[in-house]
Amino acid sequence: MMESKIYDIVIIGSGPAGLTAGIYTTRGSASTLIIGGEIWGGQLMLTTQVENFPGFAQGIQGPKLMEEMRAQATRLGAEFKEVNAESIDITKKPFEITAGGEKYFAKSVIIATGAETVWLDAPGIKDLIGRGISSCAPCDAPFFRGKKVAVVGGGDAAMEEALVLTNYASEVTIIHRRDAFKASAAMQEKVLSNPKIKVLWNTEVMEAKGEGKLEKLILKNNQTGETSEVPFDGLFVAIGHKPQSDIFKGKIDMDERGFIKVSDGSKSSVPGIFVAGDVHDFRYKQAITAASFGCMAAMECLDFLAKSGEN
């Protein structure tokens, strides 16, 4: 039987955190496997122009940025597999990770699994995803040329969705359950000064209706209790993200929302397992901070390997 390779470091996740970690670990001469997921690249794969990543004076397309980061990590020697991590056995040394039905062995692990879209929990939503309901305006906005669309949410992501949609839709309505946005001032200003965008404050989506495709939304004003039925061709959901930490439940300490707990930099509750990016960061959630956390985790991981005499 062929002896299985033991990697110095296995990185789970391939957004800015995971790929930056891979760049640093390979440059630190650690054999590195990135378990990147079938849907690799993280949240930036669902964006268009990224204006706030340093080094790109004219901005850069999100997917392009991720392709470059991946190419950089693999050029430096990281192995990259487009498979999903299914489970991890932290009781074994080396750690044993099952991904895409295969087992991989690692002296240390960096968890950089990021966060995924939270869908609205209302009747009709799930059935109409891809049939008028979307979480990716950059992907789907062109199909709503001259149509009436809604965006639900109040953060930067919702503002971006709304702005992208104004290039195509005839009218964009932002539905927000509070009376103010939490988006950055710059994004709010762009949105509020755009004549194509209107805002329904203190409003919640109660139900999505349509035969085969979205036709209307049932909305409720949470101040007056008044409900209304409003025709829409599209609904873009941008109410937030939740950490993708399910496979680590019961093995690694996390808070009640599923964010992995870190201490002393990027250490998890298990020695030899480090954490980077949106799977623990509920505060900054930026591509550049995720990349920085990836760098930190990589350096601590290399330090751990050196100290344990394993590298």
Binding site: I39, M45, T47, E67, P138
Partner: peptide, 10 residues
């Protein structure tokens, strides 16, 4: 598909 769609490229 379309050129500008990240998931399409994946």
């Amino acid at each position: 598909w379309a050129t500008w769609c990240g998931p399409c490229r994946m």
